[in-house]
Structures are given as C-alpha cells and as structure tokens.
Amino acid sequence: MSSINSNNPYGDSRQHHILSVMVQNRPGVLARVSGLFARRGYNIYSLAVAPSDDPNYSRITIVVDISATPLEQIVKQLFKLIDVVRITELDPRKSVERELMIATVRVDGERRGQISELANLFEAKVLAVGADAVTISIDGNPEKIDDFEELLRGYGIVESQRTGRVALPKLEREARKGATKGKAS
C-alpha cells in the first residue's frame, strides 16, 4: 500500500498533515519552501503546485508526515519566507483530498474485459488500448486510488504515475444550503 497513513515510516501515531501554501508565482519559491523541510531531513510525501485563480499566485499543496511540534515550527518559518503569502493547514478529516493516477497495465485480450469492468466499478477511464496493454486514468480520494492500484497490481503494472495531492477544506455543514435533512432538531 502506498497510502501515507497505512505506510507510516515512523511506525507511530503521526498523522499526515496537509499544508496549503499560497505563494507569489515566481522563480525559486518552490526551492525555498522545500528547503525548509530538507534542512531538517524531512521528506515531502507529495507536492502539487499550480497557479491559483489569480495567476500572480500559486498554490502549493504539501503532504508531509511529521509530528505536530516540528511542523508548527516549519509553518512559522515558511511564513517568514518573503514570497509566502498565506498558509493554511488542512485537517484531513475536514478536507476534500484528490489525486489522479494514470497506469499502464499489461493484459492480454482475454483479461482486457476484467480490467474494463474494474475500471467501470472505480469510475476510471481507459485512455488507450494496445495489443497487450491498456492505459487507465483514475481520479478520486487517495484511498480509492490506493485500492485501485492494489487491484491493478495483480495484472502487472508496467508504469504508473500519481499526481501530488490537492486539497481544499470541506464546506461547513451549516454552509450547505438547505441541508436540513437528518438534523435532529
């Protein structure tokens, strides 16, 4: 399993943390940000960077597996970087997380149907079909992708690539318009 939670390298109860860092969209910013982790010998588990809705700014989503105390210090030091405009730590329980994976799987004609069926179940898309392989794309929450990847493994993954995780806070229940159903009173 490649999920950060199931494959905790520290073997303790550390939880993964998601940092959403809004930065000025300029050269060198990513190096400054990642340098603060590297300096302490921490690995960044996943990283996704793209311009935000305002092209002057980029949003960096960083997933790390660090206990809370050093992370608090890193967050403060990240915020000291001149190019960092805003940092939000997203609580995994209160966030929507998404990843995308594309994978090429070796299949002969006989088993192609099984793969196609599996793809349907997971709402994955078949992107390309070759004589003895198919390329599939799937997006969704990271656990779902873990599960799918695990099932594909049985067929033989030739190559696969997952994106870094992106995340946004879940909408507060109160903010969901008309969501009164199920409320006790």
Partner: peptide
C-alpha cells in the same frame, strides 16, 4: 518581532 521564535 519574529513569530517563529515564539515557542521554538
């Protein structure tokens, strides 16, 4: 003046 010093 440096918030990162607080609690370091």
């Amino acid at each position: 003046i440096d918030p990162a010093e607080q609690g370091k």
